[in-house]
Structures are given as C-alpha cells and as structure tokens.
Amino acid sequence: MAEAQQILRDPALFYWILLPITVVMVLTGILRHYLSTLLQSAPKRQPLAKLREQRSLLRSANLRTNYAQISASAFQKRREWLIENARDGKFLADPDARGKGKPNPMSDPAMMEGMMGMMKGNVAMMVPQSLIMGWINAFFSGYVIMKLPFPLTPQFKQMLQAGVGTRDLDVRWVSSLSWYFLTLFGLQPVYNFILGSNNAANQVTQQMAQSQMGANPMGGAEDPEKLFNAEAENLEVIEHYYILDGVEDRLLERFQGAI
C-alpha cells in the first residue's frame, strides 16, 4: 500500500469506547479475583486413615526410587515388610471395602464438595465474561476505534478487525470487539501489578491450569487396593544396587588434583 489510509475518527470514540472497555475489563478482573477468593472453600482436612493410606503409598514409591541410598540388607527388610503389608491391605483407609472395586464418585460427599467448588469457580468466570461480551456486542460493535503505530501483515486482519466487514481496510485499524479480545488475553501483567502474582483475575490462565490438572475430575480416585498391589509388584522386581559401592574410589578420583 503506497500511502497510508486516512480515516477521520471522532475523538469521542477514544473517550467513550476505548477507555470504557479497558477500564471495565480491568475492573472485572479485579472483581473476579475477589469473588473467587470469597467463593473459595477452605480445603477440607482429610481423615487420618486416608492420609495414612496416601502417605504409605508415597513411602513405598520413595523406596522404589531411592533404594540405592540404603544397603541391600536394609532394603530387603523394608521391601518384605512393605510388600507383605500392602498385600494384606494393612495400609488401606477402609479395609472392609476391599475387593468392592471403584466407588462411585457421585456418592462420595467429599468428591461432591470438590466438584461444587469447581462449579462455583467456573460460574464466577463465565457470567461476567458473557455479560461483557453481550454488552460490547450490543453497544460498540462495528466501530473502528484505534490505529496501531506499526504495520502488520494481512494475517492479523481476523484478529484485529472482528466485527468490521471491510476488505480493504488497513490491518492497523483495530475494531472494538477485537480490542475486547486483546484486553481479555493481555491484561495478566496489569493484574499482577495490582493484585500480586498469584491472583485469580484472569480466566484464561485459570482455564489452562484446569485443563492441565487432569483430564477427568469425575473419574476420581483409583481403587487404592489396586495401587498398592501395583506398588508391591514394582518393588518385587527391583534389582538392588548400592550407591556407596565404590564411593571411596570415586571420591579419590575427584579430589586427585586437589591433594
């Protein structure tokens, strides 16, 4: 394009569209942060038996990964003890429920609680988001509100000119709807500045965290008995080696130059 397009914009566009959208977006972020802080239910204490089950499992996993730290006889003792107790279900939180298979997640009140918490968080995000989207669509759609100070390739047209159906408009012009999306995705640093780094203001980052958390929250816990049996099998096949084997030679070799 030889000469830059000139569009005469009413300066009121800046004061009545660009600024309000930005301010509203920042405010909703802050509102969402405080709302989710309020809605957050404190994590419930787990019953002692459940805790013991989890940590025992962790202990045998520790033995499985760090067995090289202890001598063969010490390892053998621990292995036998752990395998025997795991097979007998001594670590299980609920020994009576052995062999009954996976419990239904819907029947577990603790699980329901967790799901309610997640629902609350989701609602706190979805409601303001759709409200603002509707507000912008109703009042401001179709406006070109600003011009970027740098040139861009035409691929950005979709991103920057949503809601404006002109083919020949220079990509540097940004429509109001696109400005909304840009602020939606780009305000995280602003929230970090205002609310501190572990805020709950931005929904996008939260959604990302949720999708990483695990594909299926409904699937819930595996059957602990199966986990213990698998752990026992894993322990059984370990071929022990000792980290202290030959350590004196390694050390001497390392300090050879130093002496």
């Binding site: 001598s71 063969a72 006889s73 053998q76 022990h240 000792y242 202290l244 084997d245 004196e248 030679d249 050390l251 001497l252 300090f255 130093a258 002496i259």
Partner: peptide, 21 residues
C-alpha cells in the same frame, strides 16, 4: 548378605590424607 567388601588399606590411607589436607 549383599554387603560391600571392606575397603583396601591403601584407599583408606589416601582418604585419611585427603580429609586431613
């Protein structure tokens, strides 16, 4: 028992020197 053999006198001496220095 799977226990390690005792170290050679030579190595122990060297380790002693190393620690001292």
């Amino acid at each position: 028992r799977g226990d390690l053999a005792p170290p050679s006198v030579d190595a122990v001496k060297k380790l002693n020197e190393l620690a001292t220095s």
